[in-house]
Amino acid sequence: MTKKNVISENGIRRNPPQKKGLLQRYAAAPHIVWSVLFIIAPLIFVAYYSFTDADGVFTLANISAFFTEKYLIIFFRSVKLALIATAICLLLGYPIAYFISRSKPKTQKVLILLLMLPMWMNFLIRTYAIMVLVQDTGIINSFLGKFGIGPIHILGTEGAVIIGMVYDYLPFMILPIYSVMSKLDNRLIEAASDLGCNGFGVLRKVIFPLSLSGVISGVTMVLVPSISTFYISQKLGGVDTLLIGDVIEQQYTASNYNMTASLSLILMLILLVGLAIVNHYSDGDGGGMMP
């Protein structure tokens, strides 16, 4: 995305590359050291543990274990809940992002601040807050009880997990979409209107296609943590809402590092393939996580 913008904006190009100074040459050094120590090395360990047993002997048992019913059910449940949460985030977040981007600059600042405010609090605390809200004796149910409704049993169901995911990750959907929309040239909207589009036509023909890169970023940023989450399902879900993240965590606490590693590796690979496909179909324009 950034690459394209550099060329398209008034055709201005960056200065030709100059001879690199000392600072430029070594500016990336801390990042490289960091990457090697905390990303590449651990990944090698993960791969190593995935393909060995507790005695360090090569085996495919950990990998094949994933493809048994026990793990597949949990994996597909994770995918299902994450997809539902992502869809809800998109349906809620897109109009919100549109609304914010169309309001006055001052209002925009306030609304974005309100959106970010909950994110300044710890995820765990927010998840506990949702627990208090939805439990059988919680605020929502005691409010509904005044009208003779309920109590609706939410806590411990898949619904509660989805609510938790949506609540925790909604800002990650809104922010990238808002950021793309707020940069949208108002003249394009006027041009569409000038060429015969009514309000909905402008949204469908111009605003949506041009905000697609934001949508893809948003979807990625909600889907990935939703699939791999474990504390949301632990706090809000029940026995039958165990997610793949929970299983990984359980294996780790049980000191079964080989199984932990193989589950992580497979999940990571599946996510990478999925994102690569999404990015491919978005013309490589979707400011997603893939290069």
């Binding site: 394009l188 041009a191 041009l210």
Partner: peptide, 12 residues
């Protein structure tokens, strides 16, 4: 119909 300043062509 209008021809806009800086054209406002649809980039997509």
């Amino acid at each position: 119909n209008t021809v806009f300043q800086k054209y406002a062509l649809f980039p997509h």
